[in-house]
Design a protein around this nucleic acid. Sequence first.
DNA 1: CATGAATGAGGTTTCATTCAT
DNA 2: CATGAATGAAACCTCATTCAT
Lengths: 214, 214, 214, 214
Amino acid sequence: MHAVALEAFAERGYHGTSVPQILEAAGVSASSLYRLFPSKEALVNAVFLEAKTRLGHALAEVEGHDAADADRDPASVAHARFVRIWDRLARFAAEEPVTFRFLELQDHTPYLDGPSRTKELSVLAPLALTCMDLQRRGVLRTDVGVDVMLATLWGALVGLVKASRLGYLALDADKLAEAREALWRGFASTEPIADARTRRATRTNEGTKRRTER
Amino acid sequence: MHAVALEAFAERGYHGTSVPQILEAAGVSASSLYRLFPSKEALVNAVFLEAKTRLGHALAEVEGHDAADADRDPASVAHARFVRIWDRLARFAAEEPVTFRFLELQDHTPYLDGPSRTKELSVLAPLALTCMDLQRRGVLRTDVGVDVMLATLWGALVGLVKASRLGYLALDADKLAEAREALWRGFASTEPIADARTRRATRTNEGTKRRTER
Amino acid sequence: MHAVALEAFAERGYHGTSVPQILEAAGVSASSLYRLFPSKEALVNAVFLEAKTRLGHALAEVEGHDAADADRDPASVAHARFVRIWDRLARFAAEEPVTFRFLELQDHTPYLDGPSRTKELSVLAPLALTCMDLQRRGVLRTDVGVDVMLATLWGALVGLVKASRLGYLALDADKLAEAREALWRGFASTEPIADARTRRATRTNEGTKRRTER
Amino acid sequence: MHAVALEAFAERGYHGTSVPQILEAAGVSASSLYRLFPSKEALVNAVFLEAKTRLGHALAEVEGHDAADADRDPASVAHARFVRIWDRLARFAAEEPVTFRFLELQDHTPYLDGPSRTKELSVLAPLALTCMDLQRRGVLRTDVGVDVMLATLWGALVGLVKASRLGYLALDADKLAEAREALWRGFASTEPIADARTRRATRTNEGTKRRTER
DNA sequence: CATGAATGAGGTTTCATTCAT
DNA sequence: CATGAATGAAACCTCATTCAT
């Protein structure tokens, strides 16, 4: 039910999908659906919540550090972390294209209810925290706001997937990696990174806003 | 009429907008509309065509070179060109938010007709040509496909605007510049640029690029 | 079950009450109801039958004569009997407002079945007999038909209760008594009542009917 | 449209009447109806308003005094006035049985809007004023509240009409007159009426509650 | 026995579109 | 030309009822 509604909404959008279309695809009667969900809007919210939750799970393990991390060059570790984030997102887009497409639909806003909006934020949060952490450690530039990074990152991925769907692009692992490295170059700090022992001292008092190096 | 329909579609999408809604907003009668457009679909295509055309115009002069360009450092010239492209797009998004939002809507596809799809491609084309040109001249990296660059670029802008609309971000000229520079760093070649007169070997310490593979 | 359905029907009428509403109010499942009653219509008939029966019971003892009656002035006895009838009805309306309201609903007719209609008549019958008896005894006027009396009596009570429910009237014992006495004056014979032995001879000169305007 | 809806609602009640039933009876399409009335509820309110207005008109001329009135016995004049009121109502019930039946439906309340409720009151008002006037002039008893009189009067008429519809009664002019005279006897003062010049002095300080005559 | 799940028919309302005027 | 009135189809949703469990 969720799945079939997700697919329908992803394909044609909320307004473009009629309840009967969903019913037929699911092979159930109207009343069966309406016993589960009080309205079409409740259905799309349930679908949205589930989709966001899956996206959240896809990102959840980003923070896991390899055991070997401690021994390696901090810049490498940070890059690997970035790679992990991007690849999770990319994997999600590749493995759950329908879910991704649904989430990527513009402007769910008018019909999303409170819980859905809350969820939306809660999925983004860990990503934002990670970026802030990397910034604090001098790995990511501080002259690019975290908000800008996230919007750019997600936007870029969405753009790639959409271009691929429209046939402007044959998206594969290579192309995803190209974009990922480009973004990394755009976001990563160019200063040498102090190692773990001295970092804190030297990075104190970094202006939190852009243009520090100018 | 166009303007009113554009606004309605941008606000609620094609399927979310009813003909009566447009009629009321425009203050005309159904028959008046149907004399101009044979159907709702024809209307949205006309609107789309016009919107894309305006976007095309916004990009059209990107290729104009300042008279001073010839005298300057090729890298600077290239960067300036990139800045021009981005700023045109950003300006378009800022000055015609409704049009931008409309174009940014996912999946016009199902109801776009032939001319509209053709137009879609024709607007992107000059941008692609510019990128390819810059690549050939060694200003943009060749290890990032032009298709990837364009998708990333446009996607990033869309992502920023959308984040701004949802309140995750207060988009202003500074933030747009942050994103632009990040993308430039991601796309720009780090090798010295061979140009007709000089080849400058000034770039040192690119540092972060692809050091993962060591 | 009966009670719950009665309340629902009284509140919103037969057509205005859905089976699910009743189910929820009763806290039972559809199947439970349908094992007891074959259909919604059967349910409302059962409810109707029970309600009419209760009304019948409320009127049943009207005919009981106080032991003292025999000793008193016949007019007083008759008046007391009338008071008893009215007060029974009024008490019923006061003590079972929901049932009263249900019965008072216009036009059960379309969905009442045979037994229900039979019951309807059987409840009215004793009242009619009483009135006819009183008429025969010269206590009630003979220039007002028993059918008119009953319809007026019941209609007046319904009107009072309805006016009260709509807030046009604060119905209490006093107001009920006002109406009762007014009706009594309207229905009671003005001639002195001969006792049982001479009554028949004196009943000449019906007179007053429709000649008031002289 | 109004007429056909009125008939349908009068026949089966608001909830018992489906929009398609009205449409078919009126021979129009759903959209035609919905261009005139935003909803079924708006329709029933419009119908109600019109019906009450017609009832109001039926009562409007009650107050007209015959030229001859001044010369006649005050009690006769008052009685004639009462007759006029009743006969207007009865005529309305007879000439517009459908409208009468519609208005008589219990508990429009849940779906009536503001204007409808206001109208309901405004129709009753002149009748109430007349009764109060008659009371003040010593024609109607003061030991029966005006509210009680009105509720009784209207209720009695409704009761008669309903009994007639259900076949308990063959309502004709005679029976209507019987009921009318009975009510008159119930409501009319039994004291001799002082003429216009002395009335005010003698009727001062009448107890407003019942049992004056006891 | 009692229930949760199911359903076809039908409820009210809106849509995209047409056409006489 | 422009409009108000009209319409069939379809939208979302609820109803009275049934049946496997």
